[in-house]
Amino acid sequence: MRMIRRIRTISYHLAAILVSSVSVIAMIWVISASLRQPGLPPPPVIEWIPNPISWSNYQRAFELIPLGQYLLNSLLVIGMAIPLTLVTASWAGFAMAQFTQGTQNRLILLAIILLMIPVTSLWLARFVLFSRLGWIDTIWAIIAPAMMGSSPLFILLFYWTFRRIPKELYESAVLDGAMAIQIWRVIAMPLAKPTIVTVMVLTFILYWSDFISPLLYIKSTEKYTLSVGLQMLQQLDRSNWPLLMAASVVMITPIVLLFGLIQRYFWSEKGIFNNL
């Protein structure tokens, strides 16, 4: 029996390692390609570790386009979008959790419908709208969705969290004469820390990856975010694979590091997705 169990454990891990490697293999190839010395003829056979290892592609990527500037722009967008998202999404979730059951159900339905709306269908009309509002070529056009909590999913996450907080907590505070905002700030939010972290990370990912908004609405090259910058680099030198892969790694790394920081928590029993 012990023998069989051990074999099962080993084969489980072997299979899991295989699955994991297939999943990340593209990334390994990319890192390897990004370290290849520029100007060498392309390798005739697969090359896992380039020889010699060269960091100059990273340097060149920052020289060829203002990648540093774009990185800052992306961070600025995120720096504005995260607090806005947290406030609007948690307010909406907080309010939702305290309405009558009927209203709650209607609002859940609304959120689900909103999740189902194809974003591509909104590009054009938003472009027309933003150009009338004078938002074209401003950061507002990119962070506009943060006004509505960035994604209906975030509203639902907060709603689910706040609904689990015992009603008596709110009610006694209301009897003490506390304002809704105070209850939100003093009671609700401190109890929602896991949700806050999750929404922050997801918001980060959302705006870090956003390609379409800056592509459509940002005009000045110095206001580009990393996504558009990367696309620009591709157009400048489309066959320079080591260079393009280096720039891609620059874009991926922060997000992977960030996820690495929270991954333990993300998969834990208390993780947000296990409590839906």
């Binding site: 593209a26 990334m27 190839w29 990319v30 990912i205 870090w208 990856s209 390609f211 990393l226 996504s227 558009v228 990367l230 696309q231 591709q234 393009l244 892969m245 720039a247 891609s248 874009m251 991926i252 997000i255 992977v256 996820f259």
Partner: peptide, 10 residues
């Protein structure tokens, strides 16, 4: 997790 543009280039 990988941003769309980077994913496409990869």
């Amino acid at each position: 997790l990988i941003p769309d543009v980077a994913y496409a280039l990869i």
